[in-house]
Design a protein around this nucleic acid. Structure first.
Lengths: 332, 332
DNA sequence: GGTGCTTATGAAAACGTTTTCACAGACCCT
DNA sequence: AGGGTCTGTGAAAACGTTTTCATAAGCACC
């Protein structure tokens, strides 16, 4: 039934060592290599990767741990990571944590048991803080969210600058009562909030911020309440694509129309942000680059384990659309 | 350095067999089990899954092969599959084929080498046709797309009915020049087209169909050309979410407005289809159920390998929105 | 024509587990 | 008390590869 390397060896009239070498990169005479290849075809042999990994101590596997693959940002990044991985002959194990530190710990443990070659990880703030490099036998590259300085390689957006850029844009468009709604679980949201704060101060404006679990439903509820309050903001900065979507829903549900109703500016240039009238102003993240860079850092670290920790900071790009267009009448 | 089961055994003063049993489900006295657990904690032991898999011949791994994880339909399904997998103590290997039969073959070969427990697969039509059950040592469950009858377990939408439902809805709304744009690579698109054909005939209308690679860009280009032609359709049926998005883009770019310009009806109830004014009429697919059912079929097949092939057919749900609203003026 | 160096090959060890097998002790039944 | 059936345990085999080690053959060099 299950054909192993011994069967191939017997069919080719050589030893198992020769078969292994012929299939790998060991030195084998051309004649024998051809015999082996013929025997492989004849028997339909497929190597057993578990055995190979056990013996060679190289799993050729990388783990990807994100909050939720349905978050379009992670979807796009994961695709880039997967491409890079398979191009390097590695397989990808996918894990969704749902922003739950316990599941994060569970999956990190799993990665150790898998003896993975490396891991790309978007940790919650709580986990990022207690992430000690010495705990892991493999390189860990953080994406989107950063840990304490000097801990792990990582690739992140210049979140503070991006948050500030949205405020600057809104101010430029004539808004002053600018609120901010930020995710509660990631360092990324925190940095974006800091950027928002700094910019607001710089413009001499009074910040109003709230935080929420980074899910569309939560954001929608929070924004709905907020918009119903007296003295509500004229403009809102939303810290990621899901929260932005929730805000759009809430504005729609409240019957607030563009322009003049509420200005919305967020993150992640998802296809739909262009389609929803009159277009949503967003910071576009270089998702493909983030994934590719993460794998690059990972491979570099494998090659030279002792090089200093590197943090790649990429810039977002502001895409101004109708949702933040200059107000026609000045609000009270 | 690397702590193995022997180290644990030594620390606990027992044999490796006892450690293995204590960690697994073998019969071990409570006293020894505690000693072992203490030793595991003391040594920081993590089992080596490659070794475990090799010996036990159970990989606890399932493969998921889809065209592109960025297609929201697959994103959602994959999340459901992943949930079910991890709930059953299995890991998930993710593969993107980009609708390329060669990569499909590559990944199927990889799955054999991984000795996976099972595979969930959305094949292209070409691959589905030549998929022989006897070629694989593991159960293969097809999703979204179906193979030749009697081949593999699968869970699909009632695509013909769904395609027809969209036509019926459009006719009901007063449209008669109804075109259809369908994906070229999947049996699913083909079935939806058949449903479209049948319904058009039933209504005595003349079908106009085109096919396209299922990507937003391709669809946008095709629809743009189509809309510029004389005698263009008043309404369009689009065979999946990406194609629908391309059509929306093309309509926008051509400056065609709702209602009265072009009626659009498609598949996949993505969040943005509700948000883009005046809302897009779609067939909602039960994505979570599809993923869950697929895993259910997989586990059933593992339990009783010889049961007859089952094909689960789920119904879509028509969600009527503004994009297909009754036309105010009757067309020529 | 021995000595040394490289190269291709096979035998056997090794990778880290789980599982089989044998066995001792406890327990139950006549 | 003897024979039988459980139960918990350890020694050792097994899983399917890769890698180490030894060896023989080929070649060049003095």
């Amino acid at each position: 039934m299950a054909v192993g390397i011994r069967d191939v060896a017997r069919a080719a009239g050589v030893s198992t060592a020769t078969v292994s070498r012929a299939l790998g990169k060991g030195p084998v005479s051309d004649a024998l290599r051809e015999q082996v290849e013929a025997a492989v075809r004849a028997t339909g042999y497929r190597p057993n990767l578990s055995a190979r990994r056990l013996r060679s101590q190289a799993t050729q596997t990388i783990g990807l741990i994100v909050a939720d693959i349905r978050n379009p940002f992670f979807t796009a990044v994961s695709r880039a990571v997967e491409d890079a991985a398979y191009r390097a002959g590695m397989r990808l194990i996918l894990c969704n944590t749902g922003e739950d530190p316990e599941r994060e710990a569970l999956y990190l443990r799993l990665m150790q048991e898998e003896r993975v070659t490396g891991v790309v990880f978007a940790p919650t703030r709580r986990t990022a803080e207690r992430l000690r490099p010495s705990d892991f036998a493999f390189p860990l590259v953080l994406i989107d969210r950063t840990g304490p300085p000097g801990g792990h390689d990582g690739v992140v957006l210049d979140n503070a600058a991006a948050g500030a850029a949205l405020v600057d844009h809104l101010v430029e468009q004539g808004f002053s009562r600018i609120g901010g709604l930020f995710g509660s679980t990631s360092s990324t949201a925190e940095e974006r909030r800091e950027g928002y704060f700094a910019a607001m101060r710089r413009h001499g404006l009074a910040p109003q911020v709230r935080t929420v679990l980074p899910e569309a439903e939560r954001a929608q509820g929070e924004v709905a309440r907020w918009l119903a309050e007296p003295g509500r903001p004229e403009a809102l900065v939303l810290s990621n694509g899901l929260i932005l979507m929730g805000a759009v829903r809430a504005a729609r549900a409240a019957g607030i129309a563009w322009p003049g109703g509420i200005a919305l500016a967020g993150f992640d240039n998802e296809p739909w942000t262009e389609l929803v009238e009159p277009g949503l102003t967003v910071i576009e993240q270089p998702v493909a680059e983030i994934g590719a860079h993460a794998m690059g850092l990972l491979f570099d670290r494998l090659k030279t384990p002792d090089q200093p920790v590197r943090k790649v900071v990429l810039s977002g790009r502001l895409i101004a659309r109708g949702s933040t267009e200059r107000r026609t009448s000045s609000g009270s």
